[in-house]
Simulated scan of single mutants.
Amino acid sequence: MAEVVVQLRTPSRGPSADGPASGGTEGAGDGVDGCLRRRFGLASRPLHPGAGDPEALVWRTVDVPAGVDAESVAEALRARPDVAAAYVKPQAGLP
């Protein structure tokens, strides 16, 4: 499994800070999670659950299962105007 880390341009306005990311638009169907669901069958979650700091609320993460190209997910997210950055988190190396 790969992980894509996403930085939104504005804090998520989902139902809660731990809920779906709408990426600053009304209705999650039009936001980041709507895009992820339609194109890849995925959803984002907060990178810092429970955080109240607006700086932390712009960070989301997406678990990308085997069989789905994580770089394609990141590329699709980077193309969105409500996404400031998206990258595939490197795999942890052995200590």
Rank of each mutant, 00 (worst) to 15 (best):
M1C: 04
M1H: 10
E3L: 13
V4L: 04
V6N: 08
Q7L: 10
Q7D: 09
Q7P: 04
T10G: 00
T10R: 08
T10L: 06
P11Y: 00
P11D: 09
S12G: 12
G14F: 00
P15C: 03
S16P: 01
S16N: 11
A17F: 01
A17D: 15
A17Q: 11
D18L: 02
P20F: 00
A21D: 14
A21V: 07
S22I: 01
S22W: 01
G24E: 13
T25N: 09
T25V: 15
T25P: 00
E26H: 07
G27S: 10
G27T: 03
G27Y: 06
G29E: 15
G29R: 01
G29M: 03
D30P: 03
G31D: 13
V32A: 06
V32D: 06
V32Y: 01
D33E: 06
G34D: 03
C35F: 01
L36Q: 02
R39E: 15
R39C: 12
G41F: 11
L42M: 03
S44G: 05
R45H: 09
R45K: 07
P46T: 10
P46G: 07
L47V: 05
H48E: 12
P49D: 14
G50F: 03
G50V: 09
G50Y: 10
A51F: 04
A51S: 15
G52K: 02
G52V: 02
G52E: 13
D53G: 02
D53Y: 05
P54E: 11
E55F: 06
L57M: 14
V58I: 14
R60Q: 10
R60E: 04
R60P: 07
D63T: 13
D63Y: 00
V64F: 01
V64C: 04
V64W: 01
P65Y: 02
P65R: 07
P65D: 11
P65K: 08
A66S: 12
G67P: 03
G67L: 09
D69P: 09
D69K: 05
S72R: 14
S72V: 02
S72H: 11
E75Y: 00
A76K: 02
L77T: 06
L77Y: 08
L77S: 05
L77R: 04
R78H: 05
A79H: 01
A79F: 00
R80D: 11
R80H: 05
P81C: 02
D82Y: 06
V83K: 07
A86N: 12
A86P: 13
Y87I: 04
V88S: 11
V88P: 15
K89W: 08
Q91K: 09
Q91E: 15
Q91Y: 06
Q91A: 15
A92G: 11
G93N: 02
L94R: 08
L94A: 11
L94E: 14
P95L: 14
P95T: 07
